[in-house]
């Protein structure tokens, strides 16, 4: 029998990002991945910049290149990514250890899933992250001065 051709219908990255009709946990998932990648990128740049001192270049001392406001703001973004990643990470640890998802139940329509069970935890963690962000913004962006 001749091999029948198939059309590859895998969503690829669109499967992450095509989130128009999806639930809040999926957005949390996407943001967790993006902030993780962002922090990793920052870490790599950080290594490069600090290693420049071997060549006698100190970009971070007073009055140097890295003291422009845009970098200050960039630093705040890294902090924001960290705050989100850390607090959402605590939720994920609790969820993935099966602690915050509830026990198996008899499915009765309309179904209540583990998503409903862990949702309060998500809300608490996001409030904590937001509080962290506000406090950090005060300091980083010089709002408190």
């Amino acid at each position: 029998m001749a091999e029948i051709r198939r059309h590859d219908n895998r969503l690829g990255l669109w499967g992450w990002l095509g989130g128009g009709r999806w639930g809040v946990e999926r957005y949390a998932y996407i943001l967790h991945r993006l902030t993780g990648l962002g922090i990793l990128l920052y870490f790599l740049i950080h290594i490069v910049v600090t290693s420049l001192r071997a060549a006698g270049i100190y970009l971070w001392v007073e009055g140097e290149f890295l003291h422009q406001p845009i970098f200050r703001f960039g630093e705040f973004l890294v902090f924001a990514a960290f705050a989100y990643h850390a607090f959402n990470g605590v939720r994920l640890v609790l969820v993935e250890l099966g602690i915050a998802v509830g026990r198996p139940i008899e499915p009765v329509y309309p179904y209540r899933t583990s998503l409903n069970v862990q949702r309060p935890l998500l809300i608490i963690m996001m409030i904590l992250a937001a509080a962290f962000l506000v406090a950090g913004g005060y300091d980083f962006l010089g709002l408190g001065k």
Binding site: W22, R26, Y29, I30, H32, P107, T113, S114
Partner: peptide
């Protein structure tokens, strides 16, 4: 990583 879409989609409440 617990995007939870599977449980949201499942038509039988399997979670």
């Amino acid at each position: 990583h617990y995007a939870g879409e599977c449980s949201r989609a499942c038509p039988k409440g399997v979670d």
